[in-house]
């Protein structure tokens, strides 16, 4: 029984995560060709024997052309920026939710999550409506006389971060709120009894105890944000594409599946450390 219960999700993961990932690795060592699909596999049956026809060309190109390293770096920066902003905002929000009366917690959490339920596209449309030249923000600033000409907000870093933060903030609040409302309040009471001021209690008891959850929240935003595709595409600046976009372009526009797969594997390798850290936190 126990074995079956463990085996079921394991099989699922083997079939739908490992197998596709292996396919990806298989393709990364192949070379681009014309056909359906447009790849020549690294191993081919030739003259009655298997022969190795793979190449490391795709990986070599990754190292050669700074375009790819640049995209990776920028993706990581944007992801880290988003995650840091989200954490800064999410921590106090989650704390306030945890401190609210128990019957208010769930409704408050729902209030944080609900904007996500409008769907990505209407939400991004709202941001476009806010940020464009004749948009709301420019309209208000103009009317207040703070600016004379409309600011170019859409397709800028501001728009990018606003959109990213808006989409990812709820994912940071959720784990933090859960951890903070489940924390052991006896420790804080003990510290207070021993004469610690509230700020001191927070800094030396609450905060350190919630650090793992904070790190988890950071990673929960950072990791998917590093591969984000739609938001930068619709709100971000046109230059300096992020890695998600570059992979998309290599896959569809250049139809260089091996290179796209190699890029994906690289991103995976770079993110291996954070994901490992995240899983450690989950266990600890």
């Amino acid at each position: 029984m126990r074995a079956a219960l463990v085996a079921a999700p394991f099989l699922w993961l083997l079939a739908l995560v490992l197998a596709p990932a292996l396919l990806l690795g298989w393709i990364a060592f192949g070379s681009a060709a014309e056909g359906v699909p447009p790849v020549a596999p690294p191993l081919a049956w030739q003259a009655g024997a298997l022969s190795w026809q793979g190449s490391l060309e795709s990986f070599a190109l990754l190292l050669e052309d700074p375009h790819y390293a640049g995209a990776l770096l920028r993706s990581l920066l944007v992801a880290a920026g988003t995650a840091a902003l989200a954490l800064l905002l999410a921590y106090p929000m989650a704390f306030a939710i945890a401190e609210a009366r128990p019957r208010w917690r769930l409704p408050l959490l729902a209030l944080v999550l609900a904007p996500v339920w409008t769907g990505l596209m209407p939400r991004l449309g709202a941001w476009i409506g806010l940020l464009r030249d004749e948009g709301w923000i420019n309209g208000v600033l103009l009317r207040l006389g703070l600016i004379e000409a409309p600011l170019t907000l859409l397709f800028s870093d501001i728009a990018l971060y606003a959109g990213m933060l808006h989409s990812y903030l709820p994912y940071a609040v959720l784990p933090l709120a859960i951890a903070l409302s489940r924390r052991d309040r006896l420790l804080e009471a003990a510290a207070a009894d021993l004469g610690a001021a509230p700020a001191r209690v927070f800094l030396s008891v609450t905060l350190p105890l919630s650090l793992p959850a904070a790190a988890a929240a950071f990673l929960l935003v950072f990791i998917p944000a590093a591969g984000e595709f739609v938001i930068p595409e619709l709100l971000g600046p046109p230059g300096d594409p992020l890695l998600g976009r570059v992979i998309w372009a290599e896959f569809f526009q250049s139809r260089d599946w091996p290179l796209a797969a190699a890029l994906a594997l690289t991103l995976l390798a770079v993110l291996a450390l954070p994901i490992r850290a995240y899983q450690r936190l989950g266990q600890g």
Binding site: D65, H67, G70, P238, G239, D240, P241, V246, A249, Q253, S254
Partner: peptide, 10 residues
């Protein structure tokens, strides 16, 4: 398409 990428990145 690589030329295009460079153009987009400026």
């Amino acid at each position: 398409s690589r030329l295009w990428n460079r153009f987009k990145a400026g």
